[in-house]
Amino acid sequence: MLIAVILRQVPDTEADIVIHPEDPTRIIGDDIKWIMNPYDEFAVEAAVSTAEEHSGETLAICIGSEKAESVIRTAMAMGIDAGLLIRRDSDNNPDIISEAKVIAASLKEQMPDLILCGREYIDTGDDGIAAALAEFLHVPHVLNVNKLTVDSDQIQVEREVDGDTLRISMTLPGVVSCQKGLNEPRYPNLMAVRKAQKKPLDIKSLSDLGDDAARMRYIALSYPPARSAGRLVKGEPEDTARQAAEWLTRDARAF
């Protein structure tokens, strides 16, 4: 059984995101910490634990710049066997559908039985990679799963939609995106981190995989309107509550 995970490198959630002073289409990336997209950790854990249970092999794929190798190494430290880094030098292409197409092309020779993604990329907020990849590979998908069990050529998963829990059977091969609650991602120990450096990593470029011209472009990044402090009140709960209600109806006209 071959299990692939799709990874992305994103800025740390604590990071101050600063627009580049010379180029408003990008952020200053040098001074911030870059991490594995937090949801991808659930995908890596699911891949590694499923492979352990069903004696499978695992592959991590990441589209990114040179420095994105480190997220593949982190995944390897968590137990992933091999990696593919698809090099991209321009960050000015938020086209997730092209990304899915490129990843689908990279899997042509060796189709995985199961492909796992994180629920969402916390940088662009995109969550389309799993479904789009499934469509390009002509296989089924289920998004946002928080439970997953594998029985031979089929998996049973659960996902939540608007508060309802759906139990879904999906035939393999197929694509799943992973949600918090699916598992507890493991922390690699030092030994695993060292071993990860020696695992096989293949590097390709976007053009090797037939990526065409950018169809989406950042024109500009801007800061959202800053929220400044409003009114601060203290006192008896009844008084402060009445003031808040008055403010809402009179000044804020929320109702």
Partner: peptide
């Protein structure tokens, strides 16, 4: 046609052109 959307979990707003 271009769109605005929050990126970096709302820390920035991106203006993105759709050329397809």
């Amino acid at each position: 046609l271009s769109i605005l959307k929050p990126v970096y979990s709302g820390k920035l707003i991106a203006k993105i052109s759709l050329d397809a």
